[in-house]
Computed example of a mutant assay.
Amino acid sequence: MRVALLDDYQGVALRHGDWTKVEGATVVPFRDHVHDEDELASRLADFDAVLRIRERTEFPRSLLARLPRLKLILATGIRNKDSIDLAAARELGITVCSTEALQRETVELTWGLILLLFRGLPREMASLRAGGWQLGVGRRLTGKTLGIVGFGTMGIPVSRVALAFEMKVIAWSPNLTAERTEPHGVQAVSREQLFSQADAITLHLPLSDRSRGLVNATDIGRMKRDAVLVNTSRAPLVDQDALIAALRDGRIGGLGVDVYESEPLAADHPFRLLQNVVATPHIGYVTQENYDLFYGQSVENLQAYIAGKPMRVIN
């Protein structure tokens, strides 16, 4: 069996999973990302199985239909239905197995981005490295207001950290009620109140037809001039053109971002160039512990499939 390990950006796929346990399998890692479907179909034509990390590579029906040899997709994480055509996979006899995922990693990165923005740390660190000294005056978190859009698996633990910093925490999402937020010491507010009152706004919603473009130009226009927006969820939640325009014009304080409409991010993208943007390369879930889980359970899934007893099947 030939197995392709896709989008192994850091070259660590063979280290985080013990692929030697799988007898008779040839495992081939690829460190680059392929956007073009024709090129991807050509690359995968001779493989029986592919492993993908989260949603880095999508598998629509059009691609799956061009891979007659493919019999197994080793997906990772809990969100796969929007980026793998599970119905097509089932019709074509392709088994899709997934893994568990650790959720708090992204919460930690969210707070890293908030702290970097509030204290102006990237600029200060760059100055020190270049031989300089203090350049700006940062802001503290205590007493400020955090606005959370989406109060669930991610939003709730994010709020706990904010309360530890003695921040006021407000939250909004389309169906959010005070009954859900008040036990956590968080105030449910209107959409207008959240975007106009918060000093920092962080997004924690899954992407769907309903949430796509949810944060629009009007919302961004309501933000305080020194307020920051943090997005570690999904890029299409926000109107990207309106966001970039606000950042360029200095109408908001800054952006902390880990997710993009097209990844890897283009070399000339404004988020790489704007001084009021702190950008990370989609590393919210990228930790040693999560990779051990992704690759380790994928090895188990591959062994089980070869033994004729597939496990963690999602289609």
Rank of each mutant, 00 (worst) to 15 (best):
residue 99 T to K: 00
residue 309 K to F: 06
residue 120 G to K: 01
residue 292 D to N: 05
residue 154 M to I: 15
residue 166 E to K: 11
residue 75 A to R: 15
residue 63 L to E: 02
residue 145 T to W: 00
residue 71 K to S: 02
residue 282 H to Y: 12
residue 235 A to G: 11
residue 168 K to Y: 03
residue 296 G to D: 04
residue 90 R to W: 07
residue 62 S to C: 07
residue 5 L to Y: 02
residue 191 R to E: 10
residue 135 L to A: 10
residue 56 R to G: 06
residue 22 V to P: 01
residue 2 R to T: 12
residue 86 L to V: 12
residue 210 R to Q: 13
residue 301 N to P: 05
residue 303 Q to F: 03
residue 100 E to Y: 00
residue 218 T to W: 06
residue 196 S to D: 07
residue 111 W to M: 05
residue 312 R to W: 07
residue 33 H to Q: 02
residue 201 I to C: 07
residue 280 T to E: 04
residue 80 N to F: 03
residue 312 R to P: 06
residue 98 S to I: 02
residue 138 G to E: 15
residue 243 L to V: 12
residue 107 V to C: 09
residue 245 A to D: 08
residue 145 T to R: 01
residue 273 L to K: 14
residue 24 G to R: 14
residue 255 L to K: 12
residue 231 N to H: 08
residue 31 R to I: 07
residue 243 L to C: 00
residue 255 L to S: 06
residue 239 D to S: 08
residue 250 G to N: 01
residue 108 E to D: 12
residue 297 Q to V: 05
residue 81 K to C: 05
residue 315 N to D: 15
residue 75 A to W: 02
residue 217 A to G: 09
residue 18 D to V: 03
residue 302 L to R: 02
residue 95 T to R: 05
residue 195 F to M: 14
residue 50 V to W: 06
residue 18 D to P: 00
residue 78 I to T: 05
residue 181 T to H: 10
residue 53 I to S: 11
residue 250 G to D: 07
residue 101 A to Q: 03
residue 63 L to D: 03
residue 100 E to L: 09
residue 279 A to V: 08
residue 170 I to F: 01
residue 222 R to V: 07
residue 243 L to D: 01
residue 168 K to T: 06
residue 261 E to N: 10
residue 123 R to A: 15
residue 105 E to L: 03
residue 190 S to W: 10
residue 222 R to L: 15
residue 211 S to F: 08
residue 246 A to W: 00
residue 55 E to V: 02
residue 118 F to I: 13
residue 80 N to L: 05
residue 219 D to S: 13
residue 77 G to V: 15
residue 196 S to G: 12
residue 47 F to M: 15
residue 255 L to N: 09
residue 47 F to E: 04
residue 35 H to N: 04
residue 229 L to S: 08
residue 296 G to I: 05
residue 274 L to Y: 10
residue 171 A to H: 04
residue 33 H to R: 13
residue 40 L to H: 01
residue 24 G to E: 11
residue 118 F to H: 12
residue 120 G to L: 12
residue 135 L to M: 13
residue 282 H to N: 13
residue 76 T to Q: 01
residue 283 I to Q: 11
residue 126 A to N: 04
residue 252 I to V: 11
residue 270 P to R: 06
residue 171 A to Y: 07
residue 177 T to R: 13
residue 260 Y to L: 09
residue 154 M to G: 10
residue 237 L to M: 06
residue 265 L to Y: 08
residue 298 S to C: 04
residue 66 R to K: 10
residue 265 L to R: 10
residue 177 T to P: 08
residue 273 L to G: 07
residue 39 E to Y: 06
residue 91 E to D: 15
